[in-house]
C-alpha cells in the first residue's frame, strides 16, 4: 500500500522538476534581485560591446564592402586568410610573436611576484608606499614617450649607453641595426613598464593571507625566507595560474602599441621584432581592407581562445583550484 503513494509521488515529481528548475531560477532572481540589479549594467555592457559585435566576425569571410553592408557583401570563404600564409614570412612572424609574448608573460609574472613579495616584506610604511608608487608609475607612461627614452639610451651617436662604452674605450654598439639585442631590450622595458602595476594583484592576494598562519610558523621557528617559501608562494599559486591562463589568451596578439612605438619601421630589426600586428599594419597600409584585417584578427583570437581552453584543462589536472572553469 505504501508503495502507491510513493510511486504516485515519483510520477508527479518528474514533470514538476522542470517547472521547479525554472521556478528556482526565478526564485533565485527574486531573492537576490538587488545583487543582480547591481550586476546588470556590467552584463549589458558586455552584451552590447563584447557579444553583439561578435556578429561582425562574419566580415572575415566576406569581401566586405561598406556600402553593401554585412548583409549584401559577397561571401568568399577562407580567401581572406590566404594572403597571410602565402609568403614564408608568416613562420618568422608567428615565431616572433609567440617568442616575445612567452618571454613577456614569464618574466613579467616572475618580476611581479618578486616585487609583491619584497614589498610586503618591507618594513616602514612610508618607505613601502614610496617604493610601490615608484614601481607602478611607469605603467602610466605611453609607449610613445618610452620610445623617446629608449632612443636616448641606444642611439649610436650620443646615446647614453654608447657614451658610457666610449668612456671605457669600447667601440659603440649599433643597437638600432642589430636585431639580436632587441628581445632582451623589449623584455627589460616590459618589466620596467608593467611589472610594478601587475604586482598589485599579487600584493592584494598576499595581504589576504591569514596572518595566523605566519604567526604560528614564527612560533615554530620558521625563518623569514622559509615563510615566503612555504606559505606565501604556495598560497599565491592559484592567483599566478589564473593570471597566466588569462595572459595566454592574448599570446597571439603582438603588442602593437609597444613594438610599433619603439621599433617603428626599422627593417634591420624585423628579424626578431616583427610580430603579426606590425606585419599586418605594413601589409594593409595602402589597402586598408577590413575583411583581410578582420580575418587575421579572428585567427589570433581563435587560437588564443583554444590556448586558454587547453591551458585551463592542464591547470584543472595539476591544480584544480586555480582553473577558471
Amino acid at each position: 500500500m505504501s508503495a502507491t503513494p510513493a510511486g504516485y509521488a515519483e510520477q508527479a515529481y518528474s514533470p514538476s522538476k522542470k517547472r521547479s528548475a525554472i521556478g528556482a531560477f526565478i526564485f533565485e532572481l527574486l531573492k537576490n534581485k538587488f545583487l543582480y540589479l547591481l550586476a546588470l549594467p556590467g552584463m549589458i555592457w558586455f552584451f552590447v560591446f563584447a557579444y553583439l559585435p561578435m556578429g561582425g566576425i562574419i566580415i572575415a569571410f566576406q569581401d566586405f564592402k561598406a556600402m553593401q553592408g554585412i548583409a549584401g557583401s559577397e561571401f568568399v570563404g577562407l580567401k581572406n586568410f590566404r594572403f597571410f600564409f602565402r609568403s614564408n614570412d608568416w613562420i618568422q612572424i608567428v615565431t616572433n610573436t609567440l617568442f616575445l609574448n612567452v618571454l613577456f608573460i614569464v618574466f613579467n609574472t616572475l618580476a611581479a611576484v618578486a616585487i609583491a613579495v619584497m614589498v610586503t616584506e618591507l618594513g616602514g610604511k612610508w618607505f613601502k608606499k614610496l617604493t610601490q608608487s615608484v614601481m607602478i608609475f611607469p605603467h602610466f607612461l605611453s609607449w610613445t614617450v618610452v620610445a623617446m627614452f629608449v632612443m636616448a639610451f641606444v642611439a649610436t651617436d650620443g646615446g647614453f649607453i654608447n657614451q658610457i662604452l666610449s668612456a671605457f674605450g669600447i667601440p659603440p654598439v649599433q643597437f638600432l641595426s642589430s636585431p639580436e639585442y632587441w628581445p632582451f631590450i623589449l623584455v627589460l622595458l616590459k618589466i620596467w613598464h608593467g611589472a610594478g602595476f601587475a604586482s598589485i594583484v599579487y600584493m592584494a592576494t598576499i595581504s589576504g593571507i591569514n596572518p595566523d598562519i605566519y604567526e604560528s610558523a614564527s612560533i615554530d621557528g620558521a625563518s623569514r625566507f622559509q615563510k615566503i617559501r612555504f606559505i606565501t608562494l604556495p598560497l599565491l599559486k592559484p592567483t599566478v595560474i589564473l593570471l597566466l591562463i588569462l595572459a595566454v589568451g592574448g599570446i597571439f596578439n603582438g603588442d602593437f602599441g609597444m613594438i610599433y612605438a619603439i621599433i617603428g619601421r626599422n627593417p634591420p630589426l624585423y628579424p626578431t621584432t616583427d610580430v603579426i600586428d606590425t606585419y599586418l599594419f605594413r601589409a594593409m597600409m595602402d589597402l586598408g581592407d577590413m575583411s583581410m584585417s578582420a580575418a587575421i584578427g579572428f585567427m589570433q583570437s581563435l587560437i588564443g581562445f583554444l590556448l586558454v581552453l587547453s591551458v585551463n584543462a592542464i591547470a584543472k589536472k595539476l591544480a584544480p583550484e586555480s582553473a577558471i572553469f
Binding site: R82, F83, D89, P267, A283, M284, M285, D286, M292
Partner: peptide, 16 residues
C-alpha cells in the same frame, strides 16, 4: 588585394 598585401609587405623593408 591579396597579392598587393603580400608584395607590399615583402618589398617594403627593401625599398625603405
Amino acid at each position: 588585394k591579396g597579392e598587393f598585401a603580400n608584395v607590399q609587405s615583402k618589398a617594403d623593408p627593401f625599398i625603405q
